[in-house]
Amino acid sequence: MGSNPSRFKGPRRPVERVSWEECQEFAERLNGHVALGSRLPTEAQWEYACRAGTTTSTYTGDVKTVGENNAPGLDAIAWYGGNSGWEYDLEEGEDSSEWPNKQYPHTKAGTRVVGQKRANGWGLYDMLGNVWEWCWDGMRPYTTASVVDPVGPMGISADRVIRGGGWHRDAQDVRAAYHFTYRSDHRAFDLGFRCLSSGK
């Protein structure tokens, strides 16, 4: 792409501070070089991949939150506000000295190298924590009806869903079902993406 917009740079760190619109440009350029049919996953596809056949709040089971930044059950699978600054490895970091109820003491935090935490049952790393991930579609209303591969709003003005939780605080958000939206031009230092391939 010619540049790295991330605040926390490293060859094995997730890209962040990238908008949904920029993700579309990346996928288009990637598909121009390699015919993978790459794009962002829909919200339903993202959750299916995250859960890897499980039905609990995380792919290792339900996790109890004991403080805003303290959910010991997340430690093995996710970087979040309670552990993202523990033995932090970059000089650049967000001041975390005042974050309440941290699982481990730390004074600065940020993204972490991918693949250090336990993968889910399908071998996917960092589905929870580290950076929030953009989804292809907007938020759809949940109903009690059974649906297969549902897709939320796709209009040009639709806000887009983000999933997974991030390194920047809020243990309660780091679970398979949690979601909310941002405008498609939004950027944040805890917001990145993950592509899927349609194999075309």
Rank of each mutant, 00 (worst) to 15 (best):
S84M: 10
V66M: 12
D89T: 12
S97D: 01
Q24V: 02
P100S: 08
A76D: 01
C135R: 11
Y182C: 07
W136Q: 11
R169G: 13
E91S: 13
G138Q: 02
G73C: 04
N101G: 02
T42E: 03
T55K: 15
P11L: 02
H179P: 03
A52V: 08
F189L: 12
S19C: 01
E92N: 05
M139H: 01
L36P: 12
A78W: 00
T107P: 00
A49G: 03
W167C: 11
R163L: 02
D75I: 01
D170I: 15
V161W: 04
T60Q: 00
P153E: 01
R112D: 04
M139L: 15
W132E: 05
E87K: 14
R194M: 12
V63I: 15
L74R: 04
G2I: 02
L90V: 03
R194S: 13
L30Y: 14
E92K: 09
W134V: 04
T56R: 12
P14I: 11
Y48S: 12
H168L: 10
W132L: 00
L74S: 11
E16M: 03
E21M: 10
G37T: 09
E92A: 02
C23K: 01
G123R: 05
I77L: 05
G85P: 06
G81M: 07
H106A: 15
F189E: 14
H179Y: 05
T55D: 15
E92D: 10
D170P: 09
K9W: 03
A35G: 05
R51Y: 05
P41R: 03
R112M: 06
P14H: 13
T42A: 08
